[in-house]
Every structure is written in structure tokens, then in C-alpha cells.
Design a protein around this nucleic acid. Structure first.
Lengths: 220, 220
DNA sequence: CTAATAGTGTCTCTGAGACACTATCTA
DNA sequence: TAGATAGTGTCTCAGAGACACTATTAG
């Protein structure tokens, strides 16, 4: 056990949310070299007495209401030269959260914090753009076979809102009737009894997910 | 960058192969405490100048003909107490290999090396049984939507052999006609022009995969 | 000719996708 | 009543699964 190793271990969070009808990711702007002024994921070193997932949660607490967040490990990036300063291996996590639970202001943060559309990322430091792309693929996959969409939506939502989540992330429009037929057959959501109020059109029925945990269900 | 961290980073390989019509995994028997006599995955610490994947390959070279192996990262296990000696985070890799390319003898190895059926594992040290189970799930998933089965088969194989791979891993028997119909529709294998020889029954046509790389194709 | 495995086609049912109109609310 | 979005059913086609018999080889 006295193997001499000089590798540091970090976590990086890819925090997804939907804003303005587009998939966004939370980024931090660096204010020191290297890559000063460029953007990174929110992350940091793992402490000796916390698990990887706890480290990811600790970082996430600064920016979000972690009670309503879905967090899962993505991938561990272990190339030798991914950080020019020293050997740093980073385990990335994907967080999925409703926009209202994201307090993305710089208040607790020395560096500035902002959400960017994944289709329009700023200049990214390190290999973080690669990490984001990996996360986008994972999110797309999970949308196809789980109820993960719930974490991008408020507790009560209309079928149009749900459909919009899929359309935004897959960048593809679906037929309303077919979409509703499929979702209803899956038996994963239920009518809450409530409807939209004060909308300038026919108010939509509001639904809720039957399970608040991630469940595996073939969707697309 | 002078954060003080006392975590070591290791890799562990879950090496899958099919032997005697069952899915097997390669294990190493520990000859020191803790867990002396119990079995573990083949693994070890990552060196400062090699990537995680290179570390996994380096371990794999001892036991296999790495030219014919498929290797992919599984998951990083980062619980604080997973190793009683010290804080060790382990990134696991899944290797998929044909049984003939596995030279699983103890010759290069101080410890003894053996393949065990995943349905009949010996007493496992650390959290390695959990890692194996995670690997089995990943392998099942990949069988459903990729051509990963090729790495469990010789270059030329019969349709029965291919079907057997699926039956063994999913522990489910498939209808021969339906299975062949589906595989042929997928257009991922082709007839090699050769047939079995010296078999005491009608010789099967031998097929080969069109692509030697992992390709994404919906199968089941 | 026996034993063993290879190889093949049809029918039914289910789910995916294409497609157009009516309903309900606010201002 | 105009503007906006919600909400709904039918047809066609493709793929999944159930199912039974003939073909080819060695010994």
C-alpha cells in the first residue's frame, strides 16, 4: 500500500436545466490562469472523508436546491494531460434540475455563474466541453427509457410542457396525438385534478409523475 | 493546487468471456490480508504517467491477448470505506473477450487466476461482487443495442453460436426462426462462404460480423 | 438408417406514425 | 369574436412472437 502516486481526484458537475425552451447547462467563469476568462463546469477536489457522490452534492448545494435534484455519475476522465497544472482525474456527475430550483447567482461565488444553452457554449476550459457533450448524450438516453423528464419540470405540468422537454432535447417535433397516446399508455403520469389558470387560451390539465424516483420505462 | 488529498486511484477489470455455455468472469485469489483467500477482480494502482484506460490495458495484457479485447469504462466506485486499508477510489472497466484469447493460467501471476461463472461466484473481497453485477448489467444492455456479441465469439461463427450468446447472458431461450429473422434484418453479419467441418450433423454456415468495431444497432 | 443440429415461412397482434378538426379560455 | 393553445380517433404499416417441418452430415 506504499505505492507512490501523485494524482489528484476531482468531481465536475454537468448541471442541466431547461430555460427559454432550450437545454441549458450551468457554467463557472474562471478568474485565474490557466484558461482565465474561459468557462468550466462547477467542480472541485474530493475530500478524504467524503464519497465521490457526496463531493458532487457538496458542490451542487452552493448553486441549487438539492432536494429536487437528480444526480448520477457520468464518467471518469483520466487522460494524463487533461489539466496542464498537474495530473487530475475527474469524475463527472450529471445533475438534472428544474430551473426554478437553480439559484444561479454569483452571490455565494467568487467567480461568475451562468447558464448557457448547450447549443451555444462559450469557450470552455480543459476538456469540459467534451464532458458536457457526454452528459447530453446520457440525458438523451435516459429520456428514452426513464421518467427523468420529471426533474426538468415543475411538480404539476401540462402535457404540452412534457412534450416540449422531449422536443427541446431531441431537437425534433412530435405529433401531439401520438405523443399523448404513448405517454398515457406508459402509465407513468396522472391527472392532478388541477388546470392552468389565467391563461389566454383553453387551460391545460395539469399532470404529475406517479413516482418521484427515477424509474425505467421504455418511452421512445 | 496545493490541496492536500490522501486518496489513491486504482483500476479494476471485469473480464467477461463465455465458457461451457455460461458467462464467466476472470478472478484473482488474494494471498495476503485483508480478505486473504478471497477473490477479487484483476486490478491495481494507476501510474502517474498513464491514463486510466492505459492502466486497465496494462493489467489486461497479463492475462489476455489484448488485440481481440473490447474494453470500456464501467463506473467509478468512490465510497470512503470500500477498502479497509486506506482510501482507494477505483475506476472499473469491462473487458469482453473470446475464451480462446484468454490465457488464464497463473504462470505470470503470483496469485492464482481462474474464471468463474457469474451465477456461481466465490467469496469476493471488497465491493468487487457489486462491480461484477454492475458489469453484467452493462453487458446485457450493450447486447441489446450493439454488436458487442462479436467479442465473445470467434471470427467465424454459426447462427446457433450467436443465438447461444444471447441465451446464456439473458438466461432466456429464443425461437430459432425469429432470432434469425431479426439478426438478418439488422444487416450486421454476413456469410463467410465457409461451413463447419467434421460435425456429426448438418454443418452450419459460418458467419462474420461486417464491422469489427462496436456499432450501435437496436437488436432486442 | 439413426442421431444430431441446421435451416426455413406464415399468421396474428401490437405499437409507431401520418393526419385535421373541435373545445375552451382571455381580452 | 379573435387569438391562442388544449385535446382527441382512425388507418396503415412494420416488427415481434407463436408455431412445425425438412435438410444435411457422420458413424
Amino acid at each position: 500500500m506504499d505505492f507512490d502516486q501523485n494524482i489528484k481526484l476531482a468531481v465536475d458537475n454537468v448541471v442541466f436545466t431547461i430555460k427559454d425552451g432550450q437545454l441549458h447547462v450551468l457554467l463557472v467563469q474562471r478568474n485565474t490562469e490557466p484558461f482565465k476568462g474561459q468557462w468550466t463546469l462547477s467542480g472541485g477536489f474530493v475530500m478524504d472523508n467524503e464519497s465521490l457522490k457526496d463531493a458532487a452534492y457538496r458542490k451542487l448545494e452552493i448553486e441549487t436546491d438539492v432536494d429536487n435534484v437528480y444526480l448520477e455519475q457520468l464518467y471518469t476522465f483520466g487522460e494524463v494531460d487533461r489539466d496542464p497544472r498537474s495530473r487530475i482525474v475527474s469524475t463527472s456527475y450529471m445533475a438534472v434540475i428544474n430551473h426554478k430550483d437553480l439559484h444561479a447567482q454569483a452571490s455565494n461565488y467568487i467567480e461568475s455563474l451562468e447558464v448557457y444553452s448547450v447549443d451555444d457554449l462559450p469557450e470552455m476550459a480543459f476538456d469540459h466541453e467534451k464532458i458536457i457533450n457526454y452528459g447530453v448524450e446520457r440525458l438523451k438516453n435516459k429520456l428514452e427509457y426513464t421518467n427523468i423528464a420529471q426533474f426538468l419540470l415543475p411538480d404539476l405540468f401540462s402535457l404540452s410542457q412534457l412534450q416540449n422537454v422531449y422536443e427541446v432535447i431531441f431537437e425534433h417535433e412530435y405529433d401531439t396525438r401520438n405523443f399523448r397516446k404513448k405517454i398515457k399508455n406508459l402509465d407513468i403520469i396522472e391527472y392532478s385534478g388541477q388546470k392552468q389558470k389565467n391563461v389566454q387560451h383553453r387551460p391545460a390539465k395539469l399532470y404529475q409523475f406517479k413516482s418521484n424516483d427515477l424509474e425505467v420505462v421504455e418511452i421512445f
